[in-house]
Design a protein around this nucleic acid. Structure first.
Lengths: 255, 255
DNA sequence: CCATCTTTGTGCACGCGTTCACAAAGACAT
DNA sequence: ATGTCTTTGTGAACGCGTGCACAAAGATGG
């Protein structure tokens, strides 16, 4: 991602930092909630609180999209919902295929958050012939043999891999060869893909390990309370909008 | 580095950058695979390729743990597996409770990656009385009423929330009140927690939206192929170790 | 014991992302 | 109109993370 950067009409997209893009869905969710409550406008302060971020950061994020706020008033909820949706490409239909209909694949298929955001499950695919035809979430599972045909017929560009680790790379290769250019990988493997294909991974095991690290650290400090730092015990019970030690990575949202 | 080193047993933990911690599980996975193949040593170059990262980054990451490599040779696989496991706190047992046994909760319960890394499912909890007693992944589901007792009896410090968004904050509050200090949240909500409690979130919807953004950007550039930049068409089919537009966030690993 | 070759560990510079702090913009009341 | 008050949009400083490039460490062979 550093090829020709010299000129180019600043597709604007390039102008939006990756970190900002990752937060837009968060804002969109908060805004949608406000919209449903018929709230007409929000200040950056309020919206930031709802999304769990810093208000200055939120304003800067929005500034990349343009000047959609009104000083002294705030942001128009409906307008902002539309602008962010458009920026994220959610105003169009995105057919998605899910490969690997095990426990997780089924959970994803049943997940209601798909349709609500422009995503449509075009097909469920599994390698097990016994699964073929069996309906999951109202959609009949199809065999892997159909993969290429489905992708091409429906113009699918986003694929979700929920197979065992061993099958992931192979499935990935077939998806890419058939035309998929964005992959959400749930399998615990590093996927090799050609340039131009985006891969995002979601890994439960890694998340747990990171939590374990911090948990151990807390326990250690508590036990060997040697320094002047007050032990974690003195923590207050009021909500603190603390969103973990990092403060970046995306979030989830199943059933 | 900076702070410690002067004296203090180098709680070391604080010295490890968050970004590095997030990559340790990745290295551990790659190392475990090598270990199973009885490979005695690896160079930073090889391991980096397997983990999908830059070799310099990997070496710097390991340097935070100590000098565990041998110049001219590489790293001892077994030794490194042990050191990273210990650093991440995986040498001890971590009882985990999963709250919300819907499709996703069941998928998580069935996920084999738990036990393999020091995590143990202490209990499955659901608010639906009809679920009570019903075995999922060989473990009987218990009612929410038992939550506090289970957490205290088993000394659970890590909780997984797989409930609908509406119930998440309430469940979170109860988990925290009962003693949980690390939460993995799958519900599409911003959780408010007291200081000292870590929250990590996994959000499928957000991941898909980020992919959609990039997908749209690609489509746009392709259509308006105005500049000198070669269209995505000329992409090569060889694996490029390209891991998406970002290059940071963790990975997944279900069934 | 010395020379050579490999690979680590890290100093350094660069760039992105975050946050502060404030000027400018606009609403609203008088 | 004019003044006041609220809230945006952003310039600038700071800190973290990344990657280069190389010196030092150690293995290996003669």
């Amino acid at each position: 991602m550093a090829t020709g950067r010299t000129h180019r009409p600043a597709t604007r997209s390039r102008g939006i930092p990756e970190a900002t893009v990752a937060r837009l869905p968060l804002y969109l969710r908060a805004l949608t909630a406000l919209s449903e409550r018929s709230v007409p406008t929000v200040s950056s302060e309020e919206l930031a609180a709802a999304a769990g971020v810093n208000s200055a950061k939120l304003r800067k994020d929005f500034s990349y999209l343009g000047s959609y706020g009104t000083r002294g008033v705030g942001y128009d909820v409906e307008y902002l919902v539309y602008q962010i949706s458009r920026e994220l490409g959610l105003t169009q239909d995105w057919p998605v295929v899910i490969v690997g209909i095990g426990n997780l694949g089924a959970a994803l298929a049943n997940y209601g958050g798909f349709a609500s955001r422009g995503f449509r499950v075009a097909a469920l695919i599994d390698a097990d012939p016994a699964m073929a035809g069996k309906p999951v979430a109202g959609i009949p599972v199809q065999h892997t043999d159909e993969l290429e045909k489905i992708i091409q017929d429906d113009g699918v560009s986003i694929g979700v891999i929920a197979t065992p680790a061993g099958a992931a790379q192979q499935v990935c290769d077939r998806l890419v060869a058939a035309g998929v250019t964005s992959i959400l990988n749930f399998a615990p493997t590093v996927l090799n893909v050609p340039e131009g294909v985006d891969v995002r991974k979601v890994d439960l095991s890694i998340e747990l390990q990171i939590l374990a690290f911090h948990e151990q650290r807390k326990a250690g400090e508590e036990a060997a309370a040697d320094t002047v730092v007050p032990p974690v015990a003195a923590r207050k019970q009021q909500p603190s909008t603390d969103q973990g030690p990092d403060g970046d990575v995306p979030a989830v949202m199943p059933a």
